[in-house]
Design a protein around this nucleic acid. Structure first.
Lengths: 225, 225
DNA sequence: TCAAAAGTGTTAGATTTACACCCATGA
DNA sequence: TCATGGGTGTAAATCTAACACTTTTGA
């Protein structure tokens, strides 16, 4: 310890991760049964401690990489949670982060290895400690974000149908939207490009596949800072 | 240390406070010249370390009480800041909070005692470490909040004129608004009550004073959760 | 009497919402 | 041939934005 900030108590700091995925028309998050005491066996977010030599964002990225095997994800901080008794073992201040992933990119073996499962956000069991609060806040922030920025693409394959995109918005916002109005809005967004490709998975007729053009979005005068 | 989370490094955790005030038509925050090393003499937010026996929100309330002498303020967490090198002295993870106060309630002697000054948000000097980022994020969050919830009243006396309220919105949002449209919107809000009292400070003619009715707001069907 | 702030309505344009039918295909 | 999801336009209602003059009063 240096001379600067003497006599102040140090505390364990962890990061907890809310991993959002979209599958079968449902918004889901990755949770697992806690494998350590205290709280062994309770449903819990995946987390890890912040090391002395890493920033908190770095720690979040590391932990999320550990869990998902994925890099360059859309990750945002939810906030710090620091009630004295939030962890029954020892005092731990935890910083929650959420990440959006395309479930198709997620390696099944990693999932098994970490003993985590996708749980529909609507059917969340009670979680360990204050992890419920973290999830609620993450969802609130994500809804906020998705309704003014196109972040939903991080939850979809790079090619997707308009119906998929609509179902995603509905699952996130928890309410249905009108198909024609939705498609009208999408048409106004120049950064959502129609391709000539057809998806035949989800219907007999087939549906055009679209893609999100990140560059066009960045250049869109509407979203310029 | 208990047996639970062995071998993880602990770290100093602090809270830093962005105190917003509204005076002379300007949105201002309280900053002071840093009185300790490292960074002595640089402009800085007021902060303090989180004690072992207090939650982070508690710590924020304590530090803000210390600085302002005021209780029951509107306080919100901005987020955690945790780059390894953010503090040149030693590793410190800091959690930023913003608070809204009515400058008239602020005791001048406390201000002098802590050596802090009101600085217009538009004319902020470079601040110590990442405090600039904290202020930017706090402002962003506050703007977001104020445009969908009536939190502005926390920055005003309990009786205020519509012109004051408008100037406040303008200062926060950084843009002018139309007087008639503004007043129209206010009239639609049943929780902003006109009193029979007249303010003669700011004009010869005098302007009606209004008050924010917290109860009416809570009961407003529009804002029901 | 005049400078300074208070107060007050209307209209055009833009945005949002509601709503129903035909199409293409594989089973 | 029929069940399934894909795809399309219009009109009413609502919301937003622009805009200018009269009132009161203390100096």
């Amino acid at each position: 310890m240096t001379i600067f900030y003497q006599d102040h108590s140090k505390v364990l700091v962890s990061v907890d991760c809310i991993i959002f995925g979209f599958d079968e028309g449902q918004l889901r998050i990755l949770v697992g049964k806690r494998q350590m005491d205290p709280g062994r066996g309770e449903w819990s977010l995946y987390g890890g401690f912040v090391n002395a030599d890493e920033g908190i964002d770095e720690a979040a990225n590391r932990v999320i990489l550990e869990l998902t095997g994925l890099r360059n994800l859309y990750i945002r901080q939810v906030g710090a949670f620091g009630s004295v008794d939030r962890d029954p073992g020892e005092r731990v201040i935890s910083i929650a982060y959420y990440a959006l992933i395309n479930v198709k990119d997620y390696d099944k073996s990693l999932q098994e290895q970490h003993g985590v499962e996708w749980i529909n956000i609507e059917e969340m069991p009670k979680l360990f400690s204050d992890h419920d609060d973290m999830v609620r806040r993450a969802l609130k922030m994500m809804r906020q974000k998705i309704s003014c920025e196109p972040i939903g693409f991080n939850l979809l394959p790079s090619l997707f149908t308009l119906t998929q995109l609509q179902k995603l918005y509905e699952a996130v916002m928890g309410e249905e939207v009108d198909k024609r109005n939705f498609r009208k809005r999408i048409k106004d967004m120049d950064f959502i490009e129609k391709t000539e490709l057809i998806d035949k998975e989800s219907s007999k007729r087939g549906a055009f596949l679209y893609r999100f053009n990140r560059r066009a979005y960045r250049d869109d005068p509407y979203f310029k800072l």
